[in-house]
């Protein structure tokens, strides 16, 4: 009885207080970035204006002038959206084939796909630079879209495969009986049934594309440069521009963090390849 009483006192007061403390601590750097983004550059480094300051929107209003933010944001949106769309177009038929017409090699193919995800990107840095420069693709949207698609394709196929596997085979087979062809099956039966799974896969893929920071930095200079490249290029403001840099950083991560809140569950699936249930 004593143990029960002790543990319940902890869970009544200790646990919530501790848990909230930990949660706020982890969120603090993001909060601090957002807070700093409402300070002028001068206020941002003054200890007396640490918490009390006159909030200003100038950092957000001047983002175009200071950093050409929207050009980079546009590139991020274009590459992430199109890469996600392309990955789904290739990934859905592939996962469909694997889930409903598996062969003996399906498992090996899937494992091999995942293994491509585990190759360190840096190992092929020079060949990629070489190929893209000689093909005239360096620093183009097309290249970044292709690369983002390829690095996310294994995860997308894997996630879709796990969702499709849950759909009873009978439903698909009933469609076959009715004389629906393969495209019809995918379009009329599979996609409506697995809509939720496809949507969350797409969301996760979009987030990964948006945050990618190796190829987008190494294979772009200006034309296709994304937000990762923009922030990377302003790595050392030496305290001069803390306010405006915070604003542009907050604008770069804000939408994604919010989107991320909605796909916590899928994140576990997508990143552990289903190995944790």
């Amino acid at each position: 009885m004593a143990i029960v009483a002790k543990s319940s006192r902890f869970s009544q007061f200790g646990r919530p207080v501790l848990a909230w403390g930990v949660g706020l601590m982890f969120f603090f750097p993001i909060f601090w970035m957002v807070l700093t983004s409402f300070k002028t550059d001068a206020d941002a480094v003054k200890p007396e204006h640490l918490i009390w300051f006159t909030p200003t929107f100038e950092n957000y209003l001047n983002m175009t002038e200071n950093y050409d933010y929207w050009r980079f944001a546009k590139n991020s949106v274009i590459t992430a959206v199109l890469a996600t769309a392309f990955t789904l177009c290739v990934g859905i038929p592939c996962a469909y084939a694997m889930a409903f017409n598996p062969s003996r090699s399906t498992k090996d193919v899937l494992m091999w796909m995942l293994s491509t995800k585990m190759l360190p990107a840096a190992a092929v840095l020079y060949p990629m630079t070489f190929i893209t420069k000689s093909a005239g693709l360096f620093d183009t949207h097309f290249l970044i879209i292709l690369v983002l698609s390829l690095i996310n394709l294994p995860i997308v196929v894997w996630m879709l495969f796990t969702y499709f596997k849950e759909i009873p085979k009978d439903i698909i087979e009933a469609g076959q009986m009715d004389g629906v062809n393969t495209w019809g099956e995918i379009k009329e039966i599979l996609i409506p049934l697995a809509w939720g799974g496809i949507a969350s896969t797409a969301l996760l893929c979009f987030i990964f594309c948006w945050n990618e920071a190796y190829w987008t930095v190494r294979l772009t200079t200006t034309d296709a440069a994304t937000l990762s490249k923009l922030i990377e290029g302003n790595r050392a403001p030496e305290g001069l521009f803390f306010g405006r840099l915070s604003a542009v950083s907050a604008a770069a991560v804000g939408p994604i963090v919010v989107l991320g809140w909605f796909c916590q569950k899928q994140l576990v699936q997508g990143l552990t390849f289903g190995a944790v249930k």
């Binding site: 930990v22 840099l245 950083s249």
Partner: peptide, 25 residues
Amino acid sequence: IVRVLLISPFFVMPAVNAVLWINMI
């Protein structure tokens, strides 16, 4: 809410993470 607060850092892009910590913090 605590879960949402906790998970947020994971979605911050690596470049922002680095710039934020090394400068502002």
